[in-house]
């Protein structure tokens, strides 16, 4: 039976490709990828942020949600099938929700700035950017904790190590014969 996880990954990537096509075909705006800064050579300016999200904002938001789903699915694929317990799925689900929360706070914080033109600051950056700088970095910490702390439970158990040592011993024995 084919692994359902690979089908989920495949479907996710297909939808992302569809979103990319929709973005390519959407109405374009002059500052979609930035404009030369009016005063300083070598600098780019973003210009009107609301205008460049007008046609693609929701598509791009969905694209990133799917990318976060893809990342969690790929990390789960890296855990051997027999170790993908309900506990692991719950943990991965929590990781996905945390990443989506960070992404939502970043995106909605940017939208709020576009509407009001004002922002608060957190640790040196405007709030939306702080979610990007600190939140995105931290978004993968649950995966790193799982790998490090759960290494002997999910990644390479004592039993795995024994099987591996046995495999190497068998190969060495065969090569001697």
């Amino acid at each position: 039976m084919r692994s359902k996880l690979i089908v989920v990954i495949f479907t996710t990537v297909l939808i992302m490709a569809g979103l990319l096509i929709a973005i390519v075909l959407a109405d374009s705006v002059p500052n979609g990828a930035g404009l030369p800064h009016p005063e300083f050579n070598g600098m780019q300016a973003g210009g009107d942020g609301a205008a460049r999200l007008e046609h693609i904002g929701s598509l791009a938001f969905a694209f990133q949600c799917l990318l976060l789903l893809l990342i969690v699915c790929l990390a789960t694929l890296g855990v051997a099938e027999q170790r993908r317990s309900p506990e692991l799925w719950a943990y991965m689900g929590g990781t996905l929700l945390f990443s989506l929360f960070v992404w939502y706070k970043m995106y909605s914080g940017h939208q709020a700035f576009l509407e009001t033109g004002i922002t608060n600051y957190f640790m040196g950056f405007p709030v939306a950017t702080a979610w990007q700088v600190y939140g995105t970095w931290l978004g993968a910490i649950p995966l790193i904790i799982l790998y490090t702390v759960g290494f002997r439970k999910y990644i390479f158990t004592e039993e795995d190590e024994r099987k591996y040592e046995q495999l190497l011993a068998d190969i060495a024995e065969r090569s001697e014969q």
Partner: peptide
């Protein structure tokens, strides 16, 4: 200085 910078979201 917003999350998507001058180069934009995509």
């Amino acid at each position: 200085i917003m999350p998507f910078g001058a180069a934009g979201i995509m």
